[in-house]
Design a protein around this nucleic acid. Structure first.
Length: 471
RNA sequence: GGCGACGUAGCCAAGUGGUAAGGCAGGGCUCUGCAAAAGCCUUAUUCGCCGGUUCGAUUCCGGCCGUCGCCUCCA
């Protein structure tokens, strides 16, 4: 069969476009990574699932994919005003550790989180602090093109000099409302942003570097552009991130990159929509309604169930998160695995039916990563008795390379991972024996005790099983 | 104020100019000492509201209502 076209919704054009790589067979992609001053919350983590899907889909189709993901490990200001605190240095001070320790610690925690979610590591992780010379060079390049100016605060990008500024975001520059916390003093245009910030004269920063303009640290938008240039070159195929980055961060990246090189920066910009809470509130590090992956694990959920939940919603749509939704996803997820587990590998009837599903599922994924549709088709497939189970299993193995839901791993059911207290274990044993003796009264009495201890006993033909009751 | 997105069953969520995938929850049946689990079956005459285009719209166009996001570090 011929490989289908991949269509991606490109923020630049606000349309689905057929993906054509810059170099045939190769894909250069960059994924905006986290600022590591705290744990990632599940909303953050969601936005790394769709690039993972994309990367795996492209690899599946035979492309050679190079993906870079960064860690913003240098602190930036909480606002562009001079008075802002540096998040990393702030966290470091609060915990009595160095800024370097903080960023390293949370970068490692992030790697663990994405591993738990079966998000494959990029070809390389890059750390902003490893690219300070490149960032300085980029500012120099912009300076040479007369796109910068310096003030007391630092070196700024003069966005009025870049004709396409704000094009992707469709910014109405006149209509932008200056935020109450922005200190516009010293800026020529309200959209100007810092390329290099000077260290404060009255305080010692932990992270600061010498530069041609004075001691300081790079502006936030600079690092992504510099690292992309260093690792992937002046023009790349795909750049991913959250929708919140469209108007500022990515707009500024484009201004920096295209201002410096005069060449197109990114061919396809992909943005993931936010996860929101029940009341349609966004989850944010600043909002205080922060749920981490560990929170879910502690509540008894599998990280894969969370991945499943994310895959049942399109990446460009809001995903409403609630404990109930996750519970429903988790139930569905493990039920799907059980269904797959019970397929019969010897049943090889109707290969043509399987071929049809293969095409449909692949088309769904190629259509701007329509994972929800693909998951629906997987359900359809496993329940379709017109297709031989053996063929179903082949397809599931194939597509799980992309979906990464561990659909063929039958050893991670929640009940198998349970720690069952000895006393519950012996109660269960006693009940089993009472049952065999047809002593129903005693059997029911013991079942009540087991339930009171938080477990449910499932009677099988020759054995029983204990599962935790919902809290 | 500017820009943008969304509104499909109790809940989550696909989708198409030709009459609504899938999942969860619910209901029924089978199984079971009774349960649970599992299996089978079932669940929207209808897609926020009102107009328009059309033989026909949930799907296209216009208006309205509602919700949310971004414009400030944030995925």
């Amino acid at each position: 069969m011929t490989a289908p076209e991949v269509k991606l919704f490109n923020t630049l054009t606000r349309e689905k476009e057929v993906f054509v790589p810059l170099t045939p067979g190769q894909v250069k992609m960059y994924t905006c990574g986290p600022t590591v001053y705290n744990y990632a919350h599940i909303g953050n983590l969601r936005s790394y699932i769709f690039p993972d899907l994309l990367k795996k889909l492209l690899a599946f189709l035979g492309y050679q994919v190079t993906q870079i993901m960064n860690f913003t490990d240098v602190g930036h200001l909480t606002s562009d005003a001079d008075a802002g605190d540096d998040k990393i240095e702030k966290a470091a001070a609060a915990l009595g550790k160095s800024a370097w320790d903080i960023s390293k610690f949370y970068a490692e925690a992030f790697k663990q989180d994405i591993s738990a979610l079966n998000i494959a590591f990029p070809s390389r992780f890059t750390y902003a602090t490893d690219y300070i010379p490149q960032q300085i060079d980029l500012v120099k390049a912009l300076e040479d093109k007369d796109l910068t100016y310096a003030n007391e605060d630092g070196v700024y990008y003069d966005t009025a000099q870049f004709s396409d500024y704000g094009k992707m975001a469709k910014l109405d520059l006149e209509g932008l409302q200056e935020g109450a916390r922005i200190d516009a003093d010293g800026k020529r245009n309200k959209t100007d942003f810092a390329l290099w910030k000077f260290s404060p004269s009255d305080a010692q920063r932990q992270m600061e570097w010498e530069s041609p303009w004075g001691k300081g640290f790079p502006g936030w938008h600079l690092e992504c552009t510099a690292m992309i240039f260093a690792e992937l070159g002046p023009t790349i195929d795909i750049h991913t991130g959250g929708t919140d980055h469209i108007p500022v961060h990515h707009t500024n990246e484009i201004a920096q990159a295209e201002g410096a090189t005069g060449q197109p920066f990114v061919k396809y910009w992909l943005h993931g929509e936010f996860l929101v809470l029940d009341q349609n509130q966004r989850m944010g590090k600043s909002e205080g309604n922060f749920v981490t992956l560990q929170t879910l694990i502690d509540a008894g959920f599998s990280p894969k169930a969370y991945r499943y939940l994310c895959l049942t919603s399109h990446y460009r749509h809001f995903l409403t998160f609630s404990q109930d939704n996750l519970k429903a996803a988790s139930t569905a997820y493990f039920k799907l695995k059980r269904t797959i587990e019970h397929l019969h590998a010897q049943d090889d009837r109707h290969p043509e039916g399987a071929a049809e599903y293969r095409e449909k599922i692949l088309n769904a994924l190629c259509d701007d990563l329509n994972a929800p549709k693909a998951v629906g088709l997987i359900w359809d497939l496993v329940q379709n008795d017109q297709v031989g189970d053996a063929h179903k299993l082949v397809l599931i193995r194939e597509f799980d390379q992309i979906l990464s839901l561990d659909l063929l791993n039958f050893t991670d059911y929640p009940e198998l991972l349970l720690q069952i207290p000895d006393e519950v274990q012996s109660l269960a044993q006693a009940r089993w024996e009472a049952r065999l003796a047809k002593n129903w009264a005693e059997s029911d009495r013991l079942r009540d005790l087991i339930q009171a201890a938080g477990f449910q006993m499932r009677d099988g033909k020759d054995s029983f099983e204990l599962v935790a009751l919902d809290a």
